[in-house]
C-alpha cells in the first residue's frame, strides 16, 4: 500500500534523506530505528507533507496514488495518520470541535454526509474508552495543559476516531512511564484491523514488546542501512548501533 522509492529530501537546504526505499503492505508493522539525526522524523514529516521539508528526488505511492502530489489534508483523508512526537496545543479549540471538523472533512472527501452532533459525541465517548482517556480531557482544548503522557494518549484517541489505514508513530514512547506506555500501545493494538499498517519510530525495544513489528529497519545518514525481523531490534537493544556502522564501513 505504501511504496517509497529513492526518496531524497531537504530541510532548510540541507539534505537529510538520501535515497530511502521502503515498501509496506497492508497489515505490516515496520519499526524504524536509528540514532538522533538519522532522518527518522524527517521521513515521517515528508510522508505527511510538512511544508518545511522539500522532496528533491524519488517517489511515494500510497494506495496507487502519488502521495507527494496530495495536500497534507488529502493525505490524511486517504488514511495516513501521524502520531506527533510533540503534539501542539491549540488554546480555545475544544477536542470535540477539532475532531468533528477533522472527521467531517474526511467524510466530505469520501462523499459522505457530515456526522450530526449527537452521533459524533457518541462516537467520541466510545473511542475514549479505548485509550482510557478521562472525559475531562476530552472536553478541554486540544492538548492544552495536558501532561506528556496525556498528549500521547490523545494522539491515539484521535487515531481511534479517524480510523487511518497507515499510522506513523513518531517516538510515541518518549516521555511515557511504563503504565502510560502500556495504555497507549494497547490502545493502538485494539484499534488495529488486519489491514492497518504502521511505521513505528522508536529508540527502545520496550514499545516493540507491545507493538510487535514484522520488519525492523535501521536508518543511518538518511538511508536504510540494515533491515531484518523483530530480532534486529533486540540485537540493537543489547549492542547499540556501532556494530552496524562498523559492518557498513568494512
Amino acid at each position: 500500500m505504501l511504496e517509497i522509492k529513492n526518496l531524497h529530501a531537504t530541510v532548510s537546504g540541507k539534505e537529510i534523506l538520501k535515497g530511502i526505499d521502503l515498501t509496506i503492505r497492508p497489515g505490516e508493522i515496520h519499526a524504524l530505528m536509528g540514532q538522533n539525526g538519522a532522518g527518522k522524523s524527517t521521513l515521517s514529516n515528508v510522508l505527511v507533507g510538512h511544508p518545511a521539508y522539500t522532496v528533491t528526488e524519488g517517489s511515494v505511492t500510497f494506495n496507487g496514488k502519488d502521495l507527494l502530489a496530495l495536500s497534507p489534508d488529502e493525505r490524511s483523508h486517504e488514511g495516513l495518520f501521524l502520531s506527533f512526537q510533540q503534539p501542539v496545543e491549540i488554546p480555545g479549540v475544544s477536542m470535540a470541535n477539532f475532531m468533528r471538523a477533522a472527521l467531517n472533512a474526511k467524510r466530505k472527501y469520501l462523499g459522505q454526509e457530515p456526522l450530526d452532533a449527537s452521533s459524533f459525541l457518541k462516537l467520541m465517548r466510545e473511542k475514549r474508552k479505548v485509550v482510557e482517556l478521562d472525559s475531562k480531557l476530552a472536553n478541554r482544548s486540544v492538548n492544552e495543559g495536558f501532561s506528556g503522557g496525556e498528549k500521547k494518549r490523545n494522539e491515539i484517541y484521535q487515531m481511534a476516531i479517524l480510523e487511518p489505514t497507515m499510522c506513523i508513530l513518531d517516538e510515541t514512547d518518549s516521555g511515557l512511564d511504563v503504565d502510560a506506555l502500556r495504555i497507549v500501545a494497547e490502545g493502538f493494538n485494539k484499534l488495529r484491523t488486519p489491514e492497518t499498517s504502521a511505521i513505528v519510530i522508536t529508540h527502545y525495544q520496550r514499545l516493540l514488546d507491545y507493538i510487535k513489528p514484522n520488519f525492523v529497519h535501521v536508518l543511518l545518514g538518511g538511508r536504510i542501512v540494515k533491515s531484518g525481523g523483530p530480532e534486529l531490534a533486540l540485537e540493537i537493544e543489547q549492542r547499540g548501533f556501532d556494530w552496524i556502522k562498523e559492518e557498513i564501513e568494512s
Partner: peptide, 24 residues
C-alpha cells in the same frame, strides 16, 4: 500543520484556531 494532518483544510484550520483564540 497539526490541523491539516488531521484532515482539516488550511483555511478551515485558520478559522478554527482564530475562533479558539477569541473564545473568551
Amino acid at each position: 500543520f497539526y490541523c491539516q494532518q488531521r484532515g482539516i483544510p488550511q483555511e478551515e484550520a485558520v478559522g478554527l484556531i482564530v475562533n479558539g483564540y477569541a473564545k473568551d
